[in-house]
Amino acid sequence: MMNLKIVLIIMLSMAYQSLLAQTGGDFKAIYPEGRIPNTTTGKVRLKEESVIGQDGKERISGVSIPTMRYYAPDKSKSKGSAIIICPGGGYAILAMSHEGDEIAKKFAENGIAAFVLKYRLPSDLIMADKSIGPLQDVQQAFKIVREHATTYDIKPNKIGIIGFSAGGHLSSSAGVHYNDIKIENLKNTSLRPDFMLLLYPVISMDTTITHGGSRNNLLGKQPDEALVKYFSNETQITKDTPPTLLVHAEDDKAVPIANSKRFYNALQKNKVSSKLITYPQGGHGFGLNNKTTDDKWFDHALEWLHQEGY
């Protein structure tokens, strides 16, 4: 007979996740209250702050409680697919508007259910192991969306991920470490993204090409070499890594394009369906619109998703 405690945990989780699955404009917590994993024993909580910059873009810092916002597609346009969105920000802040909400609206307009993930930012103050905190949150997001695919009117085998900059690192981590489960998963739900879209992503922790701020914030200034290799995601690819589309500008000074090229080359070596779109200019952090070109990566992404069956 199943342990009573396990039964109660399952019932609590189901009731909580059903609440989360309801549509709405607000962010909703992805863990039941008091059950956020990997927290320090104290009750330290960072002060979450939202700042609108002079560029009109929202940036959020101090995330202690991970949440998710759902953008439902028009039912007449629905493709039965969904995408989880990880904004960038060097694992220090979240570029919530131009790499989160704007992206979600665009996908929803095109028939793809979208979920913006406000993941915890690595911090020794609130996490026992800050290196796995964001990965736990993205795994929990996949668990929720996949277990409630019927509620969202999507197919459980058509749930992917998109990430920008450090959010691209988190997304690719979800794609290569989905079998290394960091959360409670009593139903053994698959946490594997069905596809990945990576925009000017941090991929490697190799100091010759990484983004120093992302590496330091996630791993610390003197990380163990095993941890560096684990999170150098170009070294973790197998034939089962999800199909991937990468987009990067050649003149990106913050995150060298070598990150995308290494990941793409490893995907090709392992015969994983993949595509790399490069632009001569555009720099870093352009979100939906690379102002140096009339070419729209989002249009290519929709075409690629269609070709891949999503």
Rank of each mutant, 00 (worst) to 15 (best):
M2V: 11
V7S: 02
L12F: 03
L12Q: 11
L12K: 10
S13E: 15
S18Y: 13
A21K: 09
G25Y: 07
G25E: 08
F27W: 09
K28V: 11
A29E: 09
Y31V: 15
P32F: 04
G34L: 15
G34Y: 11
P37N: 02
P37Q: 05
P37L: 08
N38E: 03
N38Y: 02
T41W: 13
K43R: 15
R45W: 02
L46T: 04
K47T: 15
G53Y: 03
I60E: 10
V63Y: 09
V63K: 10
I65P: 09
A72F: 00
D74Q: 13
K75G: 04
K75L: 09
K75I: 06
S76A: 14
K77E: 01
G80Y: 03
G80C: 04
S81G: 11
A82M: 03
G88F: 00
G89T: 11
G89F: 09
A92R: 15
I93K: 08
I93V: 10
L94K: 13
L94D: 00
A95M: 09
M96K: 09
S97P: 02
S97N: 07
E99P: 08
E102M: 12
K106D: 15
K106T: 13
A108W: 00
A108P: 06
A108K: 00
N110T: 04
N110P: 06
G111H: 06
G111L: 12
I112F: 13
A113G: 11
L117K: 11
L117D: 10
K118A: 00
L121P: 01
P122C: 05
D124S: 14
M127L: 06
S131K: 13
S131T: 10
G133V: 03
Q140T: 11
Q140H: 01
I144D: 00
I144Q: 00
T151H: 07
D153L: 13
K155P: 02
K155N: 14
P156R: 10
N157V: 12
K158T: 10
I159A: 01
G160R: 13
F164P: 07
G167D: 07
G168P: 02
G168T: 03
G168N: 03
H169N: 04
S171W: 02
S172T: 14
S173Q: 06
G175V: 09
G175T: 12
H177F: 06
N179T: 14
D180Q: 11
K182T: 14
E184G: 05
L186E: 01
L186M: 13
T189Q: 06
R192C: 08
P193Q: 13
M205R: 03
M205N: 04
M205Y: 01
T208L: 15
T208Q: 10
I209F: 00
G213S: 02
R215P: 07
N216M: 12
N217K: 07
Q222H: 15
E225T: 06
E225S: 15
A226Y: 05
L227E: 03
V228F: 08
E234K: 00
D240V: 08
P242G: 04
P243C: 13
T244S: 13
L245S: 08
A249P: 05
A249L: 01
K253S: 14
A254I: 09
P256F: 10
R262P: 08
F263D: 09
Y264H: 12
N265Q: 15
A266S: 13
L267D: 10
N270T: 07
K271D: 12
S273Q: 14
K275P: 02
P280H: 01
K291M: 11
T292Q: 05
T293N: 05
D295H: 09
K296L: 14
W297C: 00
W297R: 00
H300K: 11
H306E: 05
H306I: 06
